[in-house]
């Protein structure tokens, strides 16, 4: 597993949220995906065994983030795979293309720390800040 990106937990009464910063939009979306994996599965190791090409669209950068994280969540919740590696190949305001590698979930190797049910729009935000980009998102747990 690659280095876990730095992120800050948002203290929401019922659920979990996170906020993180990055130098570029590509890095921001990549790190948001890795942070989601970290929330769900902590430091569980994962080898890049299965390849997925993911393309998502959104109404704006925030909607794009939600739709992107929905895809990342489904890899675990639907396909039963643990995120290993993310390469964001292109990202604009309303579209993103990425190459993602995963490993099949194996309860002997992977410990689930939190069940994330969904990625919510509530207080979700992507914005440009001095020297980079910042995003916030709240997950339903």
């Amino acid at each position: 597993m690659r280095k876990v990106p730095e992120y800050t937990l948002i203290d929401h009464t019922a659920d979990y949220g996170l906020t993180l910063c990055a130098k570029t939009p590509g890095e921001l979306y990549k790190n948001a995906a890795l942070a989601l994996k970290d929330l769900m599965l902590g430091a569980s190791p994962a080898e890049p065994e299965i390849e997925h090409r993911i393309r998502v669209a959104g109404l704006d950068r925030t909607d794009l983030l939600i739709n992107w994280l929905r895809e990342i969540l489904f890899l675990f919740a639907g396909d039963g795979e643990v995120l290993a590696r993310v390469r964001v190949e292109s990202v604009g305001e309303t579209s993103l293309s990425a190459l993602v590698h995963t490993e099949a979930y194996n309860p002997q190797r992977h410990e689930v720390l939190e069940e994330i049910k969904a990625v919510t729009y509530h207080q979700a935000r992507v914005r440009e800040i001095v020297g980079g980009w910042e995003c916030s998102v709240i997950f339903d747990v």
């Binding site: 019922a14 659920d15 729009y121 509530h122």
Partner: peptide, 9 residues
Amino acid sequence: IHWGYGFPI
């Protein structure tokens, strides 16, 4: 009642 997302719980 407590803080939800969109609607309150």
